[in-house]
Design a protein around this nucleic acid. Structure first.
Lengths: 217, 217
DNA sequence: CATAATTTTTAGACAAATCTAAAAATATAT
DNA sequence: ATATATTTTTAGATTTGTCTAAAAATTATG
């Protein structure tokens, strides 16, 4: 499996919410910053190798084998992210691009050793679950921060948007995974939230609230 | 610079004993397990980018810029080898192929952080020097074991052949970097050596002796 | 439901890296 | 030094992944 094939498999996996839904050619093209015609070409190849099931004009979905491949790539990506943050002191907004490269390194023993070295982490630095060697994902019951009602609290467990600007914003305002957040008030006007975090009370926009996952069981 | 270009630069570096000598097209082809015609094509490209100086039929040599590139690749390769052995408990005969992949990962910060994480090692698991960030190699005065005279001793500091079979052979006979080796006797007939290592006396062939580096200052 | 807009595919071209086969240059040997 | 052998380069083809432009299928609209 080539570098490029792996990139397509991963894109289809993410777009199809973990491989279940059918994904449109154009959506893949946009995600991969390429042209729809290139996507069609690659889809045909992946279809021949039985990583995707494909009917013309109907979009693609991953096969069992494709999902397995995708999980393996996601596992590698997220383990390398943990390595970069935990061992090399990278911040969580710097690791994505490097992990994009590292996820293509081929060696089962390498990944298993890395997993052990890191203490078999279950989540990456953004709170996303790391598939096990056998492809099992830890399920969590998380919700978006702005789905909480006033006076409800939750533990910050992940981000929906993991772009560097958003992550830097969180750092700047002292919001990190594991922090307890309480919704003090909600503005009807624009949906912005008054929250309490680390004994400080701050106001955040609706957009921020809709990109932070919390767990409040 | 592409993956493939980097592979050629590295091959030329190693064949030309660190970039000084001119290297023959055929030699590169053999090293890279490819055809001479492919090598000519790539050489022309590297020449246009000024990584090598090239005159038709006269072989190639690396330019300053080419040597710099080669040192950067070698630095990455050897640092990753140290990582695999020191942190992930790989043995020295398992690390080469994986490092061949890892050496192409692009991120200056990654390599500098890795270097720091490993404690700024000067040598890789096979005793080969790791170029510094600025491209400086630690020089050592090493010689081959079978250049020693009878009753001379040396510290094992590296291997010339770093293939898995040879490294496994050394492991099997309890020969490791840092061990003190004394030449007890030399057979005139076939050049094999009686040596003492770790309080044991063993007989090794000329071929083994000509692939082990020792320092005896 | 017929037409317009959009999406997707096809056809043909291109760049990168490789190959085979043949030609050109260089090196070797009697 | 001339013929032979080897090395190196060229010419043309192939594969992979991409692109543009145009055609075909699907979806949306009046």
């Amino acid at each position: 499996m080539t570098h490029s094939e792996e990139d397509y498999i991963k894109a289809i996996y993410h777009l199809g919410t973990s491989g279940n839904e059918r994904v449109a050619t154009n959506a893949i093209a946009e995600q991969m910053e390429t042209k729809p015609s290139s996507v069609t070409d690659m889809i045909r190849k992946l279809s021949e190798k039985e990583y995707v099931s494909y009917k013309k004009y109907q979009g693609v979905s991953l096969t069992e084998s494709g999902i397995g491949k995708a999980l393996s790539i996601v596992r590698k990506h997220r383990l390398w992210e943990v390595f970069l943050v935990d061992k090399l002191d990278f911040s969580w907004d710097e690791v994505h691009e490097i992990a994009e490269q590292l996820e293509h390194i081929k060696s089962e023993k390498l990944i298993d050793s890395l997993d052990k070295h890191l203490g078999f982490p279950k989540f990456d630095p953004h709170g996303d679950p790391i598939p096990s060697k056998s492809g099992v994902l830890t399920k969590t019951t998380k919700m978006l921060l702005n789905e909480l009602k006033v006076n409800q609290s939750g533990i910050c467990v992940g981000v929906k948007d993991s772009s560097a600007p958003f992550l830097k914003f969180l750092d700047k305002h002292g919001i990190a995974l594991g922090d307890k957040i309480t919704v003090l008030d909600k503005e009807d006007f624009d949906g912005s939230l008054h929250i309490n975090i680390n004994d400080k009370s701050i106001l955040i926009s609706h957009q921020i609230g809709s990109n932070l996952y919390v767990r409040c069981d």
